[in-house]
Nucleic acid binder design. Structure first.
Lengths: 195, 195, 195, 195
DNA sequence: AATGAATGAGGATTCATTCAT
DNA sequence: TATGAATGAATCCTCATTCAT
């Protein structure tokens, strides 16, 4: 029976994934402050000490945890952006990906950056904005950096807050939300220097 | 016995103001989680117990603290909105007021809602969005509530994140920021049912 | 019945004394590292938090604790030194006081500086040496500072280690120990510039 | 297959020496309590587990570490004592060897027995005192054991504390220190039964 | 109104140490 | 011989909060 009774000695990657799963669940339930490493360890089926061996601190774990889904989303967006035929399609496609993700995220408020160490959250917001900026650069190759950055940051902020609002209005369908979001993004890009 | 040297019985309002000043400073420095009532009391020159007598809890103090500047800003904005001659002027005027305020706020990240009890922060964001919505209503009397709300929330979110970005780029002048912000707001309003 | 059932609200001084008593007992039993604040608090009949409110840390408590008996001893020695009729009497009197104290200290190894934060212990040794130096100054007003300091430090070190040895040989009477200690001190002073 | 590039199978002795070097450095920097096996292993370039395979425990490592230099010193002293022509020369020679060693030791406070498991340290101090006693026995063959032991312990304690003081006054030359130390030792021997 | 004493509860973090390989 | 994964068990300390005065 290779069925594995021994929980012990998992390959690093898998252990890590399990820990992150547990952490995501607990953080989602209790918020950053409310979550205890104790509980996360318990849920992971391992000891606190191991948690600390893998991630340096509670904040480290939190960051790793949010970063995982953040990165996944933005990687998908950047990939989609690269293959979209034109600016219009890109905008439509990307906002859709984002909003679809938001639908799931609505159930995980922490990942919408609820309470959590400011530094960590800001860093992630900035990373998001940088990804957006890279995408925008495709259609606005001549725009100056600051303007592009501002546009990207505004989009990020708007999207985040839109997500919060949506969390409280789950009955509103994505078909209603997307046009509004697209229009807003379109506005944020207004006046940026194109090719 | 002359009526004494010590215990300068400050009028309640002033005491409160001092407490809020101290709280604002400490919250700003350390974030909500990092701030301790102990330190705030110390900075206020009074005792923790009194802090609790005035505001019920740490969260209460935080809310009072942020609400003070939040309310001031949005009251001014609503007032200005009421007297602006037309939609264009209104937009220009309001974004300017907001950005001018942001310039000061950049030094006080907490007031940009850093870490803090999620509930409290969300409530304030929502209050802000409601104020914005009321203002928008002036120019879009026929818009449906949800669309207006979404627009307002996106504006709030975008403004908040723009503020964060600006904090890290203080050299960028308001003259550069305002047009971008205005364009974005304009976009957010695109397609709303006007008169 | 003014008999006091309420443990609460003791005057600061008395509370402090009780805490120190408890701490001394526990430190003596378990050593610095082995002692837990938990246990000390329990023994004091109060909460850990109060312990931390009075002394800043475990080390702070330890220092306060040892300092109390250290200071007591050296105060007595300085007082005795001041009234002794001549150098010989002074030496006899002081070594006696010291050794008598040592007899009790033998049962409290920690106070002979067992394990404990290096910094704290060294600081106390230095304080002792300074007290000794002040006393020596009486009979050697013309000695240079370094020589006096060296003599004092050697006396302190010798006394400390003598105490440790004595702890393992409790059957040896003070009458046997004192002459040897006196001779040694006498040697340490040899060649110091007198009046 | 050549016998490989990696895993330089160091001879046991050298491995051990490296571990002890690392341990000495870390213990010196952080004190016994402050040092962590983790860090020592890291500095050694090996794993904690191996550290435990060589020395049984943290204390074992510490003892081995200090014993190394302690033994070296006292072996040299006993050797020198054996060949010195007379008591006076012996005293001069030995104090000089000790002080020369101290000069190096001043930079390694732990080896002056800072904080550390009481038992281990006491044992080493006692071992030192025994070595001293053996040496003293040469010139005081008729002295009773207790008196000799006391003298030896006082010398050890005085030397240790002198070393601590010297650490803080590195500018004082050995020529100034030695006479004072010799005089003190001479005193400690005063009245011991000679031949 | 205002204080200083006191608490209760919890939480992160660290470490020496041991297996399975 | 040597490792990397894993543990268990404490421990210190901090904080918001409440009484007694």
């Amino acid at each position: 029976m290779p069925e594995t009774v021994t929980k012990r000695r998992l390959p690093r990657a898998e252990r890590e994934a399990r820990m992150l799963d547990a952490a995501e669940a607990i953080f989602t339930d209790r918020g950053f402050g409310g979550a205890s490493m104790e509980e996360i360890a318990l849920e992971s089926g391992i000891t606190k000490a191991l948690l600390y061996q893998y991630f340096r601190s509670k904040e480290g774990l939190y960051v790793a945890c949010v970063e995982r889904s953040r990165k996944d989303l933005f990687d998908r967006m950047e990939a989609a952006a690269a293959v979209a035929p034109d600016a219009g399609a890109r905008l439509r496609e990307l906002t859709r990906i984002y909003l679809d993700d938001l639908i799931e995220l609505r159930g995980k408020p922490v990942l919408l950056y609820g309470d959590a160490p400011v530094a960590a959250v800001d860093q992630m917001r900035t990373r998001n904005a940088e990804a957006i900026a890279r995408i925008l650069r495709i259609d606005f190759p001549a725009a100056d950096d600051d303007s592009l950055a501002m546009a990207a940051h505004m989009v990020v902020g708007a999207g985040e807050q839109l997500g919060r609002w949506w969390t409280g209005h789950p009955e509103v369908p994505v078909e209603t939300v997307q046009p509004r979001f697209m229009t807003m993004v379109g506005g944020a890009l207004g006046g940026l220097a194109g090719s």
